[in-house]
Computed example of a mutant assay.
Amino acid sequence: MSSLTVTDEQVSATPAKVIQPAWVRIMHWTNAVAMILMILSGWQIYNASPLFGFSFPREYTLGGWLGGGLLWHFAAMWLLMINGLAYLVTGFATGRFRKKLLPITPSGVLHDVRAALTFKLGHDDLSVYNYVQRALYAGIILVGVLIVLSGLGMWKPVQLHWLVMLFGDYPTARYVHFFCMAAICAFLVIHVALALLVPKSLRAMIIGR
Rank of each mutant, 00 (worst) to 15 (best):
Y60W: 15
R58V: 12
L62E: 12
K17T: 10
T118S: 09
H28P: 08
G63F: 02
I19L: 07
V148K: 13
I36P: 02
I19R: 09
L163C: 10
R98M: 03
V192T: 11
G95V: 06
Y129H: 02
S3N: 12
L160M: 05
F92Y: 09
A186C: 12
I140D: 04
L163Y: 01
G108S: 15
A116Y: 15
L121N: 09
T7V: 07
L197H: 03
A13L: 11
I104Y: 06
L136F: 08
S41Y: 07
K17Q: 05
I141C: 06
G144I: 11
M165F: 08
I82S: 10
G69F: 14
T30R: 08
F97G: 14
S2E: 06
A13W: 13
K99S: 05
P199Y: 00
Q20D: 08
T7N: 15
L51F: 04
S2N: 03
K99H: 13
N130E: 10
R174Q: 07
M181Q: 02
L197Y: 10
G208W: 00
F179A: 12
G168T: 02
N83L: 06
M181C: 05
S41M: 13
I140L: 09
A195V: 03
H73G: 04
G53F: 04
A76F: 02
L166E: 13
G153W: 00
M154C: 06
C185S: 01
P106A: 12
L194C: 10
F179T: 07
L37P: 10
V109M: 14
E9D: 13
W162E: 00
K120M: 05
I26A: 10
A48K: 12
H73M: 03
L121E: 01
Q159E: 05
G153S: 02
V11T: 11
V198D: 03
W23H: 02
M77E: 04
P157R: 04
R203T: 02
G91R: 14
T61V: 15
I184W: 00
L152A: 01
A76R: 06
L202N: 03
Q159R: 09
W43V: 03
A16N: 04
A116M: 10
G151Q: 14
G68I: 11
Q159W: 13
L101W: 01
G68K: 14
Q10I: 04
S107W: 15
F179S: 14
L117K: 01
